[in-house]
Design a protein around this nucleic acid. Structure first.
Lengths: 165, 165
DNA sequence: GGGAGATATCTTGATATCGAGATACCTGCG
DNA sequence: CGCAGGTATCTCGATATCAAGATATCTCCC
């Protein structure tokens, strides 16, 4: 089946036959798919009264394991947002009673963000809902294809995640 | 090489061994990679004095071929933003002299957005720069792997692009 | 111990985005 | 013809994000 990127690439080949637009076959699809996923996630989380950004923060804390706390800095590397954004997110989640700030006992510059019981429940519920949704999207692919796809994507992401950038 | 998603999946398997988190191997990588790509694009376009959103609109028009014009509605489906956002984008690009609005001769509700000569030059320059950048990122993959990856991604994106959604 | 440079978080101001609704126009059916 | 419903674009208010800079604290070497 054809997708929008097929049309986009064909258009470039017609308009700019001098250029090699092969990279777009992969990277434009990644960007567009991510955008579609964002929209789908927004709808899926609405059932649980959460925004995607709230989910990202709460689940990062949930994954950390008991006592469900991380520093804002650790949250940054997991969510790929700037520090100003994270400060704002923590403020709002605190206002909703889903997390709370604690002073870091080992570093007086630092704080620890800890999930409340309510926050933990919300994270668990939303995760289950998300996985159900995502499984449907991936039904297009066999289990083997999913594995291949994951491995190829890892090759592309790893440099970003490991080098400082 | 390990990436952040490997760590994320391992953490879920420890904290929630009851859940099948396999879908995250693919979809979390897509989201994270897209985010990294956005950042890289922002830097790449800065050399040409363009923002990523400006690039998206200008190149959609450029691809359309002479006379380089599309309706706002056509631009929506290519850029995956809302109509309010597109109106705003067109306003700003008009202010910078990169596009102009023309009345649609066949439909008095509609307008056509047309690239100016300056807008066309900018789009061409930025595209060349982007492709150079993206080729480097893809150097991790053989040509065959790029083809596989593109084909697998197409399977996931196509439903979104073809069904109304 | 003291100071330079690194680090963690927060503040601020500008801006892009979204969702919902308003407006103007088109289309097709009775 | 005229109206009901659909479509294209724009308006408006709320909000999340970013970049750059401020502040407080830590680290390490002399």
């Amino acid at each position: 089946m054809e997708d929008e990127v097929d049309r986009l690439v064909a258009a470039w080949r017609r308009e700019r036959p001098d250029l090699d637009v092969e990279p777009l076959e992969v990277l434009s699809r990644v960007s567009r798919l991510a955008r579609h996923l964002d929209r789908a996630r927004r709808t899926a989380f609405a059932e649980h009264g959460l925004e995607p950004w709230e989910f990202d923060v709460l689940t990062a804390l949930r994954r950390a394991g008991s006592p469900y706390q991380l520093s804002p800095g650790q949250l940054l590397t997991q969510t790929l947002v700037t520090s100003g954004t994270m400060t704002n997110r923590i403020d709002r989640l605190t206002g909703k009673g889903l997390v709370k700030r604690l002073p870091d006992p080992d570093d007086r510059r630092g704080v620890l963000v800890r999930l409340t019981d309510d926050g933990r429940d919300r994270a668990d519920q939303a995760l289950a809902g998300l996985l159900t949704h995502e499984r449907e999207l991936l039904a297009q692919l066999s289990s083997g294809q999913q594995g291949e796809l994951a491995a190829l994507l890892r090759l592309l992401v790893a440099p970003f995640d490991n080098i400082p950038g």
